[in-house]
C-alpha cells in the first residue's frame, strides 16, 4: 500500500507492506540508518523517531501508522550540514562514545527541551530512561542536555 507522511520536513510516500516495522522502512527504503536497532522489543530506545514531535519507537510501530504523520529522524533534526544545539552539546560534553544510542538519546533530549526549557538533572534522567547506553554511564548525556538547556535559556534572554 502507499503510505504518505512527512519525513524530516519533506513530503514522502512509500509503497510498502503495511505490516513492516517503521525502523525497517526508514533504514532500508529511505537509507536513514541513523535510526538504529538494538533490541527489537522496545527496551533500548535506539530506534527512536519523533512522531508529531513525540519520541516513539520504530521497532514497535508498523508502517501503516506513519500515514499522515510528521516523522523526524536524527538525520532531520537539524538543517542539512548544521547541528541542533543539543547535538553541539553532545559533542562538547563528550556524551558520545560508541554512538549507537546517540540518535535516540538526542531525539529524546530534544523532545524534552521542547516541553521544558530548563529541566533539572533528575528530569533529564527520567526523560532518557527508556534509552539504554552501555558506554557512557549516562552522566555526560545528562550534562549535554543540561548544557543545551542552559544555552537555550541564554539565547532567549538575549533575543
Amino acid at each position: 500500500m502507499i503510505i504518505g507522511f512527512t519525513l524530516n520536513g519533506k513530503k514522502a510516500t512509500v509503497d510498502t507492506r503495511p505490516d513492516r516495522r517503521v525502523v525497517d522502512v526508514l533504514r532500508e527504503d529511505f537509507g536513514l540508518t541513523g535510526v538504529k536497532e538494538g533490541c527489537g522489543t522496545g527496551e533500548c530506545g535506539a530506534c527512536t523517531v519523533l512522531v508529531d514531535g513525540e519520541p516513539r519507537l520504530g521497532c514497535l510501530m508498523l508502517a501503516v501508522q506513519m500515514e499522515g504523520r510528521d516523522l523526524v529522524t536524527i538525520e532531520g533534526l537539524a538543517p542539512e550540514g548544521g547541528l541542533h544545539p543539543l547535538q553541539e552539546a553532545f559533542l562538547e560534553c563528550g556524551a558520545v562514545q560508541c554512538g549507537f544510542c546517540t540518535p535516540g538519546m538526542v531525539l529524546a533530549g530534544s523532545a524534552l527541551l521542547k516541553r521544558k526549557a530548563s529541566p533539572g538533572r533528575a528530569e533529564i534522567r527520567e526523560a532518557i530512561s527508556g534509552h539504554l547506553c552501555r558506554c557512557t554511564g549516562y552522566q555526560k548525556i545528562v550534562d549535554a542536555v543540561e548544557t543545551a538547556a542552559a544555552r537555550g535559556g541564554k539565547k532567549e534572554e538575549t533575543e
Binding site: 536513514l32 540508518t33 541513523g34 535510526v35 529522524t73 536524527i74 538525520e75 533534526l77 537539524a78 547541528l83 547535538q87 553532545f90 559533542l91 562538547e92 563528550g94 558520545v96 554512538g99 546517540t102 540518535p103 538526542v106
Partner: peptide, 11 residues
C-alpha cells in the same frame, strides 16, 4: 572533541 563525534550525533 571526539573525531567520530559529528558523524555520530547526526546519524
Amino acid at each position: 572533541r571526539r573525531a567520530d563525534g559529528p558523524s555520530k550525533v547526526t546519524g
